[in-house]
Simulated scan of single mutants.
Amino acid sequence: MHIRPAGSAPSRPAPMEYFTGAVWQEPICDPAETRALMALMVTFAPGARTHWHTHPLGQTLLVVSGCGLIQSRGRPVQTIRAGDRVWIPPGEDHWHGAGPDTMMRHIAMQETEDGVSAVWLEPVSDADYGQAGG
């Protein structure tokens, strides 16, 4: 058993090549500890979002605070709020992030396959993000 005290793992800015806007990540667990599960607490500033991406084994999001947006390619943008749990099936193109005027924090959980937990695609355009209607 290993207890990692709160605040012992530093917050880090999310990689700019996969996100738009100010996004912070805090590791919860990684495959080196769990063999397959990766989990992060992710905090999005208003307007911040992931790029389009997929997960080889799917992803679960648990929104812990704020109000955000999520979209699967070809479908309408949807609102997600604190307490919502979202399952994204394997291989589904999607993005998620904060609302235009609100921060959003979620726990992102996904398993790795051959060391890969996400396949990153192109940025979400401002026009596509704006489809949410603010």
Rank of each mutant, 00 (worst) to 15 (best):
S11Q: 13
S11K: 14
S11P: 00
R12H: 06
R12G: 01
P13G: 03
A14G: 08
A14R: 02
A14F: 11
A14K: 04
P15E: 05
P15S: 05
P15L: 08
M16F: 05
E17K: 08
E17C: 01
E17I: 04
Y18G: 03
Y18W: 12
Y18D: 02
T20I: 07
T20S: 10
T20L: 04
T20D: 07
G21N: 04
A22M: 04
V23D: 00
W24P: 00
W24Y: 04
Q25T: 05
Q25N: 07
Q25Y: 05
E26D: 12
E26A: 09
E26K: 13
E26S: 08
E26N: 13
P27Q: 13
P27G: 13
I28E: 00
I28P: 00
C29Y: 00
C29G: 01
C29Q: 00
C29M: 03
D30G: 13
D30S: 09
D30P: 00
P31G: 06
P31M: 03
P31H: 06
A32F: 03
E33L: 10
T34S: 15
T34P: 07
T34E: 09
R35P: 00
L37C: 11
L37K: 03
L37E: 01
M38F: 13
M38G: 14
M38N: 14
A39V: 04
A39C: 03
A39P: 00
A39L: 04
L40G: 06
L40A: 14
L40N: 12
M41R: 15
M41L: 15
M41W: 12
V42S: 10
V42Y: 09
V42I: 15
T43S: 11
T43I: 05
F44T: 04
F44C: 06
F44Q: 02
A45P: 00
A45F: 00
P46M: 09
A48W: 02
A48K: 03
A48I: 01
R49F: 05
T50C: 11
T50L: 05
T50K: 03
T50E: 07
H51T: 03
W52S: 10
W52H: 09
W52N: 05
W52F: 10
H53M: 08
T54A: 10
T54V: 14
H55R: 13
H55M: 09
P56W: 14
L57Y: 13
L57P: 11
L57M: 14
L57V: 09
G58E: 06
G58F: 09
Q59A: 11
T60H: 10
L61R: 05
L61M: 06
L62H: 13
L62R: 15
L62Q: 14
L62Y: 11
V63F: 04
V63C: 08
V63T: 07
V63E: 04
V64D: 03
V64G: 02
V64I: 15
V64S: 11
S65C: 13
S65D: 15
S65L: 15
S65Q: 15
S65Y: 09
S65G: 15
S65V: 12
